[in-house]
């Protein structure tokens, strides 16, 4: 029992230590989110998206990024938020999602990109339990900055395995 507890605590510490580091923060519907910077390949302004038929609504289509075709999804739509007209502040963050088979480059559309923040593990808190049925796997934790809270996303888990497999196939 004691060993278990120690192990759990150890895990937690290791986990939180793993979460410490630089995050790229962005805004979505007025809220600040963060993605681990090592997941980010690059940040680009909005560009022409070619829509692909028979894809889920949150998949906006594909872009041609310097000769590479990359799928793009709208994070607002993925998070069941109200869609918004793209402005000159709208950005595409190209991330690398670790799929079941390989790393998939993927663009995610956000309202605007803010900054690169160094977040200490002491500023990161566990995701509160909103209820057993609510999946909060895709949230790494809550980062306290100033008097606000930034939601740190585990971008690998934003899409579930099925979706990832589908993406892998299409990419």
């Amino acid at each position: 029992m004691t060993e278990d507890k120690i192990k759990a605590l150890d895990d937690k510490i290791r986990q939180s230590e793993g979460r410490e580091g630089k995050y790229l923060t962005f805004v979505l519907a007025g809220e600040e989110y963060g993605i681990g910077i090592l997941k980010v390949r690059e940040i680009i302004g909005m560009m022409t998206i070619t829509t692909v038929p028979q894809t889920p609504s949150y998949v906006k289509g594909v872009i041609n990024l310097r000769g590479k075709v990359i799928p793009v999804m709208d994070l607002r739509l993925k998070f069941n938020m109200q869609a918004m007209e793209y402005t000159e502040r709208t950005c595409i963050i190209v991330v690398e999602i670790t799929g079941p088979a390989r790393k998939i480059p993927m663009g995610i559309v956000v309202d605007s990109v803010s900054e690169v923040l160094n977040i200490k593990s002491s500023d990161i808190e566990e995701t509160p339990n909103f209820g057993s049925k609510l999946e909060t796997d895709y949230i790494l934790g809550m980062a306290k900055t100033g008097d606000g809270v930034k939601i740190l996303l585990d971008i690998d888990k934003v899409l579930n395995d099925e979706e990832l497999t589908a993406l892998e196939r299409s990419a």
Partner: peptide, 20 residues
Amino acid sequence: DEIAFQINLLALNAAVEAAR
């Protein structure tokens, strides 16, 4: 203003590269 936005993006990309 657009130029400033582009520079901002470039700086963020540079930060990403630096982190890598």
